[in-house]
Design a protein around this nucleic acid. Structure first.
Lengths: 182, 182
DNA sequence: AGAATATTGTACCAATCGGTACAGAAAGGT
DNA sequence: ACCTTTCTGTACCGATTGGTACAATATTCT
């Protein structure tokens, strides 16, 4: 991956996260990244679509290495899930940062990136289910609790931003932690 | 309210719900509603902003009359909440339909409609909290469980659409129902 | 150094954006 | 019937959209 491309990825990611796909114009991208159109279309010959696609792949990669893998490799499954909550809470900045995958799911352009979105959530649920089973949960119970955890996180992000209250996100994570240990 | 305006509101609502604010162009609105620009700007002199504002007010009004009021007036609080789940599940078509308030919360244009969004979720949590208290829940427990219910619904909507699986939404509602009666 | 390659800024493009102007059609009141 | 008001279709506006062309500049390789 070229240096230019990897350097502009964070700014690009925050652009899409903050403004959505349609709301992120090339003008806004050039302003946020400091790169002209020449550079952008050199790095992303297929344009805006490719930019978002690369961003989504980068996000998935980050979660794979920073969240999913540690979860899977954890010696102590419950402690591993706790670390997952830590990483998740840090990543989403206690609900102040939206989830791009979740944001895209709502609108029409979801279809164009359905594979990225599905893969992200599917992997997360899968590895979380496995870890819950390792922690002693019955198979289908584990699957549904994993589903519940993911939905709670997504909903807490939405509600926190809607009511402009990060405490909602923090309380939700705390409740999930508590249910894991009771 | 004029006849023209009220007749085009459902189509307008689905437009914003499906494509988001930025993704909903006037061309798309004219196609969806069958109204020309002349008619549209006669009904909404302030343009797209006003269209979404009216749509949001209409949604809030619907929930006030169809969900919040019945909840508040229910003789049997638990039964009232069950009916809330029925209405919610029907409204969101088992997760196939996105929540416009939630969708808007994610992106930047949230700021412009923050009052509508906050009012919607705040009212919902408020009336749900009151009903839970009537059902015998301790005050702060009720508030947090109401918060948890709203977040779960929002998250289930997101996850259902992301994974293209309405069963996720249905299971989430079922779990919430169960927690109410145990 | 000098040639080949990769990168970048700028000018430009057609298409579409949200919005306006306005003439004519409907509708309503008298 | 008439006049007034409301409504609507169409042509048009400047601004912005995503994207391209290309010359000029860095960078890399020999």
């Amino acid at each position: 991956m070229s240096n230019t491309l990897s350097k502009c990825l964070p700014a690009l990611t925050e652009c899409f996260r903050e403004y959505g796909y349609e709301g992120t114009s090339l003008a806004r991208i050039t302003a946020a990244t400091g790169l002209g159109k020449g550079s952008l279309y050199n790095a992303f010959p297929e344009g805006k679509d490719q930019m978002l696609a690369v961003v989504l792949e980068e996000i998935t990669l980050w979660f794979e290495t920073q969240v999913f893998a540690p979860l899977q490799l954890a010696d102590e499954p419950v402690a591993g899930i706790m670390e997952m909550f830590d990483a998740t809470s840090a990543y989403f900045k206690s609900g102040k940062r939206a989830c791009l995958m979740g944001t895209l799911s709502a609108t029409q352009c979801r279809d164009r990136f359905a594979n990225h979105i599905k893969s992200y959530f599917f992997q997360w649920q899968q590895v979380l289910t496995d870890t819950l089973i390792r922690a002693g949960w019955e198979n289908s119970q584990a699957k549904f609790f994993a589903e519940e955890i993911l939905a709670s996180i997504q909903g807490a992000l939405t509600l926190s931003r809607a009511l402009d209250d990060p405490a909602i996100f923090d309380r939700t994570i705390e409740r999930l932690r508590h249910r894991l240990t009771e």
